[in-house]
Amino acid sequence: MKDIYTIPTFSKNGALHCVIEIPGGTNKKIEFNAETKTFEIDQRNGTDRIIPFLPYPANYGFIPSTLSDRSLGGDGDALDILLISEALPTGTIVEAIPIGILKLLDKGEYDYKIICVPRDTKKRIINVTTYTQFLKKYRKAKDIIESWFLHYDTDGDALISEGWGDEKEALEEINKSLNH
Rank of each mutant, 00 (worst) to 15 (best):
C116G: 02
P52R: 14
F149Y: 15
S85F: 05
S177K: 13
G61E: 02
G25H: 00
L83S: 03
R49S: 03
A170Y: 14
L150W: 13
I101S: 03
P23M: 07
L54F: 07
V117K: 09
G91Q: 10
E95F: 00
K107L: 09
Y5Q: 12
G73K: 01
P23V: 06
R70I: 00
K29C: 04
P89T: 06
E109P: 09
H151A: 14
Y152G: 11
Y60F: 11
D143A: 12
S177E: 11
I81N: 01
E167R: 11
G14Q: 06
T129H: 04
G156E: 13
E21W: 08
A87I: 02
S147K: 13
F149A: 12
E172T: 15
A34V: 10
I7F: 00
L104K: 12
L54E: 02
I63C: 05
I22Q: 02
I20R: 11
Q133A: 05
I125D: 06
W148G: 13
K113S: 10
T38F: 03
I7S: 00
P64N: 08
G25C: 00
A78T: 00
K2S: 07
F32C: 00
C18Q: 00
P118E: 04
T47N: 06
L102Y: 12
Y131H: 05
A34N: 11
A15D: 14
L16F: 03
I22D: 03
E146P: 07
L82Y: 08
I93R: 04
K37P: 00
T154W: 05
T47I: 10
I81Y: 01
A158N: 15
D69Y: 09
G100M: 07
D153E: 09
K140V: 10
I4S: 01
R44K: 15
T92F: 05
F10R: 14
T90E: 08
E35Q: 06
S147N: 15
T129E: 11
F32I: 00
N127G: 01
M1G: 13
P118F: 02
V117I: 13
F62K: 03
T154I: 15
A87M: 05
S11M: 10
I63Q: 02
E40K: 11
K29H: 04
I81W: 01
S161Y: 10
F62Y: 14
D111I: 05
N13P: 03
L88Y: 01
I22P: 02
L16I: 05
Y131F: 12
G25F: 00
S71P: 00
K2H: 08
K2R: 14
G156K: 14
N33G: 08
S147H: 13
T6I: 08
I7T: 06
D69Q: 07
G156Q: 12
G25D: 01
S161N: 14
W164C: 09
I114P: 04
A141I: 13
A141F: 11
K142N: 06
Y138I: 04
L54R: 10
D111H: 08
R139A: 08
I174N: 14
D106Q: 10
P64L: 05
